[in-house]
Design a protein around this nucleic acid. Structure first.
Lengths: 364, 364
DNA sequence: CTGAAAGCGCTAACAA
DNA sequence: TTGTTAGCGCTTTCAG
């Protein structure tokens, strides 16, 4: 208390002089409460004082300590984001979108990839809870049951993709797989393909099942009977795509087109096909799913069903935010629709033998 | 103070009963200090009590509040990680590596991509400082000067790639670009290429200059004079690769091989070449840099210089950790070497016309 | 070896 | 409108 007026003694580099709210208050000759109010833009602060405070803050390069704020306010301003694997290019795009909106709104984000590993998932949850996230977006395209207990018990708002537990605080992003996949199938059918294969994602993922279902449904709709031997379970990876295509190549007859549950699979397929000496789309057509950036420059550029990572990210953030800012509101929107659309590029074309038939028909 | 002994009144779902250290202490019949010590594995805790505490913790699913811990201990256990763009697949691989080690060591990580945007960079710094990161890894492959002031002023340990300010608390990861690039050039020379082009990264990046220098040096070493018109500045993106290759195609004569400053550029090049009707490696060879996962399945699979994102991540973490755990130690290692190596795949081969010469020579 | 108590930097009543 | 003060949940002396 003795030196309470020791304003600007300004010794050169003496103590590392901690930069806290008190330092600012002293330098601006106001109470810490006023500094706090200024920072938080409380309307009742006298503009003159506010300016004084802001000036000091700018001069001293003061940044409020988020930990302290969080502790007292009970709001960490952190959202968790759980994805399956960061090395699949779809997710970085999603992450980028999430980061954009989050930062824009003063939130920080805790990313974590599970790599389909259960122990990592538990670790994830622990990290999220310890850091007191205000909500978590589970963008793994498959429910990870164990996530629920701990998080739900603590009333942490959650967003899932496709399906989530029916409970307050959880929203779900409803992806309309059907629309894009149906466009893809029809595109193929219009090209005269009848022998169309599908490489799915891991079937324990709900999203993989939905995509497969959308595929078979659309196929039937075109009057084509799905052949089980042409529906292969993949795992959404490059290698999975290669392996699946290998199996498909072993069937007889071989399909003239293959749709893939995601772009990474399709890229693996393209690679395998090239290895096998088959040309795309002359010998066989392929369609991907996701429309990751790189799909534009594959050889040939990939026809694919676009599901925007940015939309997913934006909606996920919006959902979380809605719950946080407005906890008990009259059931804030709980479902968010996500569109999918076919992007036609160059990996699809008419099958060779049917092209002949086509010309024949034309002549009739 | 009246109800200090109201131990386990245990009403059913009355208050959301906050789960804090006090709750645990009460349930285990010990003081909060003991709980704290138990959690922090202080050796002096009586094993019997410790067990009792751990049991209660497990039963109640208690997770210590990191904010509070950070506030009082002054250690946030967070490292910042700044990268240029998360959508370049090299960075997710790096991020994954960083996440692995970080989590393993109880650290959380604050990722942030600058997208080469200055205002985002400032934002980055603010976020890092506000969240009180204990150190930051700046993996942008180019110094972002403004980062220094604020961070350095606060004595935040930093790791850079290639070059960083000579000051205590900053380490640098010295990438040996020369080794891998030289291997690449020699590989090409051995294949009989003489007309070799190079597509660099943005030249304001130190790393881009180093790579370019390594290239020209290695070229001369092989007795080839670098031709300025075959050294093009790219920007490390797909589109940049396409644009650069377009320029190269316009030169006369055209180069018979092109080395790229990163794999994304090379993939763009592959695409452009395919569009131009040129075959790789028959008409022209291409070499990338990074060895991102996808380089294995490009068409053709890409010969590239491998720089391991995992190694970078591990070393970056180690450097940061060394400074944090051991602040004043006798100058902890300040430079960490990173190796690069050529991975030969199928995008390189002998140029067509020289192949003829070669056979001729053989006959002599 | 254990407990009581003093804060960490900040926000949010409550007074003035 | 501004200042005083009591904590937020935890770690860490300092006594016992």
């Amino acid at each position: 208390m003795v030196e309470k007026k020791a304003k600007s003694k300004n010794h050169k580099a003496e103590t590392p002089e901690r930069m806290d709210i008190r330092t600012i208050a002293r330098a601006a000759n106001v109470s810490i409460a006023t500094v706090s109010r200024t920072i938080n833009r409380v309307a009742t602060v006298n503009p003159t004082m506010a300016k004084r405070v802001w000036d000091v803050i700018g001069e001293l390069d003061y940044f409020p300590n988020t930990q302290a704020r969080a502790l007292v306010s009970g709001r960490s301003k952190i959202f968790g984001l759980i994805i399956s694997e960061i090395t699949n290019p779809f997710f970085p795009e999603l992450l980028q979108g999430f980061e954009d909106v989050a930062v824009e709104n003063g939130y920080e984000i805790l990313v974590s990839s599970t790599n389909y590993d259960t122990s990592r998932m538990y670790q994830c949850i622990r990290r999220m809870i310890e850091r007191k996230v205000e909500g978590v977006a589970i963008m793994t395209f498959g429910i990870e049951a164990p996530l629920l207990d701990q998080l739900a018990k603590r009333n942490v708002p959650l967003v899932f993709i496709d399906v989530g537990p029916q409970s307050p605080g959880v929203s779900v992003l409803k992806v309309d797989y059907h629309h894009g996949i149906r466009q893809g199938v029809q595109h193929l059918a219009a090209l005269n393909h009848k022998d169309i294969a599908f490489i799915s994602g891991p079937l324990n993922l709900h999203s993989a099942q939905s995509r497969t279902a959308a595929f078979t449904y659309s196929l039937k709709e075109c009057g084509i009977t799905p052949s089980p031997k042409w529906i292969i379970e993949g795992d959404h990876t490059l290698d999975g795509g290669i392996a699946a295509m290998e199996k498909l190549l072993a069937t007889n007859p071989q399909p003239t087109a293959v749709m893939c549950s995601n772009d990474m699979t399709a890229i693996g397929v393209l690679h395998k096909l090239n290895r096998a000496g088959l040309r795309v789309p002359d010998d066989i057509s392929v369609i991907g799913f996701d429309d990751i950036h790189i799909a534009q420059v594959t050889i040939p550029p990939l026809t694919t069903v676009r599901m925007s990572g940015f939309s997913l990210a934006r909606s996920a953030f919006a959902a979380l935010r809605a719950h946080v800012e407005n906890p008990e509101a009259s059931t804030p929107q709980r479902e968010y629709p996500i569109q999918t659309d076919l992007i036609v590029r160059e990996s699809t074309g008419s099958p060779r033998n049917t092209r002949a038939q086509k010309s024949k028909r034309r002549r009739q």
